[in-house]
């Protein structure tokens, strides 16, 4: 019997949008899309690949992908189906904007429970937008499962998961028995595979399982109670830079002028 792996994903604003084009919306609390499209988060891509590799190796029997987001996230779920995830679940949180990590973790943990039979939860180390880096751990706590963080590769060996993780001085190998939560960081060997075009086309027709927080036993009030923090204001740091050319007839003179200017600016 192979494992049932649940991958927690998040769709984020394209992190590659040029910094100069980053915008904040009218509320002043969240980024505005502007020219940025939405993509599957970078670490979630690695997490999905780790799960798919377990499936390729015959260690996993089923890979389910879960996200808590609005309908627009169906796009990323379809991307996961296109690389042959077996099931996609959207917990539609439309109307519950600005969920914080605690709220998100509660929703996702309940979704994992509702899914049933999950042996391994794989999450990205942090989402590519807010970079909180908490959801994976909070889900583990909520499920009461151990958590291994910053994993790069996973292999199953006789019922034991052998997890290679990035340590401060190199690589560590951790062995753990499911059920388990792991958070994944990037590595050259867990770059998400490309979809075959036939699978990409088929993914458009595959069903997406849709739940609401209420289906998970969470009404608006219960969800609000879970909030651990609130964003008051989001600002783009203002950086000013000035450029001054030091000229001179020869390098020695340029150097002397440079030193004098640096002293004037009290940098030396």
């Amino acid at each position: 019997m192979g494992l049932h792996v649940a991958v927690l994903i998040k769709q984020v604003l394209d992190p590659e949008v040029p910094a100069a084009r980053f915008q904040i919306d009218a509320s002043g609390k969240r980024p505005a899309a502007g020219i940025a499209g939405e993509v599957l988060g970078p670490y979630e891509r690695n997490a999905l690949e780790v799960a798919l590799q377990l499936k390729d190796a015959g260690a996993a029997e089923k890979v389910s992908v879960i996200t808590a987001d609005g309908q627009e996230a169906v796009e990323s779920l379809r991307k996961a189906l296109a690389v042959r995830a077996d099931q996609a679940v959207l917990v539609d949180t439309s109307g519950h904007d600005d969920l914080d990590p605690a709220q998100t973790a509660e929703i996702l943990a309940r979704a994992v429970e509702k899914l049933g039979g999950v042996d391994l939860v794989v999450a990205g180390r942090q989402a590519g937008d807010w970079d909180h880096g908490q959801v994976g751990y909070l889900v583990a706590e909520r499920l009461g499962w151990p958590c291994v963080s910053l994993v790069q590769r996973a292999e199953l060996d006789g019922g034991v998961l052998r997890l290679t993780r990035q340590g401060p001085d190199g690589r560590e190998v951790v062995e753990a028995r499911p059920p388990l939560v792991v958070t994944v960081t990037n590595d050259e060997r867990n770059v998400l595979r490309l979809p075959r075009v036939q699978d990409l086309m088929a993914s458009r027709r595959q069903p997406i399982t849709q739940w609401s927080p209420a289906d998970l036993g969470l009404d608006a009030a219960a969800l609000a109670d879970l909030a651990g923090g609130e964003v008051l204001r989001l600002r783009i740091p203002e950086r000013e830079s000035q450029c001054e050319f030091i000229s001179g007839d020869d390098p020695a003179e340029v150097a002397a002028t440079l030193v004098r200017r640096l002293k004037e600016l009290k940098l030396l």
Partner: peptide, 26 residues
């Protein structure tokens, strides 16, 4: 496909251009 091609194509999908690490808008 080569890695760079894959990245260019993903760029096309998300940003409708293949240039990686663009620091400006169109």
């Amino acid at each position: 496909m080569p890695e760079g091609v894959a990245e260019a194509v993903q760029g096309l999908e998300v940003r409708q251009h293949p240039i990686r690490g663009a620091t400006t808008g169109r």
